[in-house]
Amino acid sequence: MSQQQPPKIEFPCENYPIKVLGEAGPELHTYVVEIMERHAPGFDQERITVRESSKGRYHSVTVWITATGVEQLTAIHEDLRVNTNIKMVM
């Protein structure tokens, strides 16, 4: 059996979503915006969505960027994961 390969992304890729799940609090939103501005300057902050978990302990923050390449996405993921309040990056 051959393994199915994930679809290839064509860059630049507009409207690329990145979802960050972390402990609730304003620090999460601020940190996500800071990292996105560093790696995808000028992204549309009006499109950011924040959802609260059922018990309010976690928030998911979703942003949409124009992805320019694998290097950019890897750098974003690595910078987000440095923060110990962040539990998952998708």
Rank of each mutant, 00 (worst) to 15 (best):
Ala40Leu: 08
Lys19Ala: 14
Ile9Val: 15
Thr30Asn: 10
His59Ala: 07
Asp44Asn: 15
Lys8Ile: 14
His59Trp: 15
Ile65Trp: 01
Arg38Leu: 12
Thr74Ala: 14
Pro17Met: 04
Val32Lys: 01
Gln72Asp: 06
Gln45Ala: 11
Pro7Ser: 09
Pro12Phe: 07
Arg57Leu: 12
Thr49Leu: 13
Met1Ile: 08
Gln5Asn: 13
Val70Met: 09
Pro6Tyr: 09
His77Ser: 09
Gly25Arg: 04
His59Gly: 01
Asp44Lys: 13
Ile35Trp: 02
Ile48Asp: 00
Ala75Glu: 13
Glu37Arg: 10
Met1Gln: 12
Gly22Cys: 12
Glu34Phe: 06
Gly25Cys: 05
Ile18Val: 13
Glu37Thr: 11
Ile35Thr: 00
Ala67Met: 00
Asp79Ile: 08
Arg81Trp: 05
Ile48Glu: 00
Pro41Ile: 00
Thr68His: 07
Glu14Ala: 11
Glu46His: 13
Gln5Ala: 14
Lys8His: 10
Glu52Val: 15
His39Tyr: 11
Gln3Lys: 14
Ser60Leu: 06
Trp64Pro: 02
Gln72Trp: 06
Val50Tyr: 05
Gly42Cys: 10
Phe43Met: 03
Leu28Arg: 01
His29Asp: 15
Pro6Met: 09
Ile65Ser: 02
Val33Gly: 01
Gly22Leu: 08
Pro7His: 05
Glu37His: 13
Ser53Met: 13
Tyr58His: 14
Glu34Ile: 02
Ala40Pro: 01
Thr30Ala: 09
Gly25Ile: 03
Val33Asp: 06
Leu73Lys: 05
Pro12Thr: 05
Pro7Phe: 07
Val63Pro: 03
Ala75Leu: 15
Tyr16Val: 01
Phe11Ile: 00
Gly25Leu: 05
Pro7Val: 05
Leu28Asn: 04
Ala75Pro: 05
Gly42Lys: 09
Gln72Pro: 09
Thr62Ile: 12
Thr74Phe: 12
Pro12Glu: 04
Thr49Asn: 12
Leu73His: 08
